[in-house]
Design a protein around this nucleic acid. Structure first.
Lengths: 204, 204
DNA sequence: GTCTATATAGCGATAGAC
DNA sequence: GTCTATCGCTATATAGAC
């Protein structure tokens, strides 16, 4: 696992890109293989099954999320501002991973849980349901760790809820029209004003 | 359309329930028919195609959304408080419709637009993409109308963005674990505190 | 390791009996 | 109107050549 064969990452990138731009339904093994310039057989040599591909995507999210939590904690402009501002950078690696996994969470059918050596996912309570529960769990875990990093820097629980929900809203809108089209989310000066408002309302 | 044949509404209810609890992928015509206690043929007599079923679901959302905007405008406790508080009532008819349509938006493959006699959907810009663009458009339109109703009651654009994004975040979390499991969204006293904070931060 | 078949199964939709 | 039966297509996964 030290030096991953180039193809693996390329396939995973294609999987992520297709989930974002085409949705879960259209992200077939055929489409992923085509986008990654490998054959279906070649793809399945690297991953074995679609569930394994999803697990690898989740593992990537968890790795990026762990790195991000460290950045949140050490952000010079303050955790709240950093957290909100990076919630709208849709071309960021972490943000792309979040959107891809949220597509898996809502549309997937696998129950995941294989965990092929990621960054130590502490999966729990895998209730059998429609959405990919491993994806849902990863999203929840990531959110919880971000909240823990931000908690000391806001006034109270309501302030923390506010920050987290605004970030969730930003991601939801990005995920809705992640393909193209003009988003509804504020950018530039409007984003600056929004962040300033949230920071002011949540200061300890 | 005045007196809908009982079966139609029952099928649509089953479609909605399955989208919420099982996800888009698992919501097959077979599963919907089974849940509605009709055969697949009987289902397709009423709707004709799965796209038509999705269009009917979207039409239901638009009808409920139009009613809700009227309620937002006349809410005695103020539009902001009403809007946020009703964003967490997951068993409400409107909220269920929103979650169901958001599942269609992220997972669907149809391009919709047939509009078989709903409440006047002003569809526009149907870009060919992965997600059901009619569902995305309906969600955007609903959000825009809610924003228009709230705009006069908040301080400025940043305040409006804040209210809308908190509501989006509430819905996103509800949609993530709409099946079962304990949600992450604040309820009870925590919700009261959150709403009070938002209202205070956005007052004109 | 990567490819070209091929097996298997499930989905959307149609045909036609009742 | 509602059903049963079936067609055609596509998706996942496997087998085995190179």
């Amino acid at each position: 696992m030290a030096r991953p064969p180039h193809a693996r990452e390329r396939v995973l990138d294609a999987f992520e890109a297709l989930l974002i731009s085409e949705g879960e339904r259209a992200t077939t093994l055929d489409a992923v293989a085509r986008a990654a310039s490998v054959s279906k057989g070649g793809l399945l040599y690297h991953f074995g099954s679609k569930d394994e591909l999803a697990a690898a995507m989740i593992a990537r999210l968890e790795r990026l999320a762990d790195e991000d939590v460290a950045q949140i904690r050490s952000a010079p402009e303050g955790p709240v501002e950093y957290y909100l501002r990076t919630s709208v950078m849709m071309d960021d690696a972490l943000d792309r991973a979040i959107i891809a996994v949220s597509r898996l969470a809502q549309g997937g059918s696998g129950q995941g849980g294989s965990g092929q050596g990621g960054s130590g996912a502490g999966g729990s309570a895998p209730s059998a349901q429609g959405g990919n529960s491993a994806a849902i769990a990863a999203l929840h875990r990531m959110r919880e760790e971000s909240a823990a990093a931000i908690r000391p820097h806001v006034r109270d629980q309501a302030a923390l809820d506010l920050v987290m929900l605004v970030s969730d809203g930003l991601f939801f809108n990005n995920a809705l029209d992640a393909d193209g089209s003009d988003g509804v989310v504020p950018t530039g000066a409007a984003l600056d004003a929004l962040i300033a408002l949230v920071v002011r309302a949540t200061l300890p």
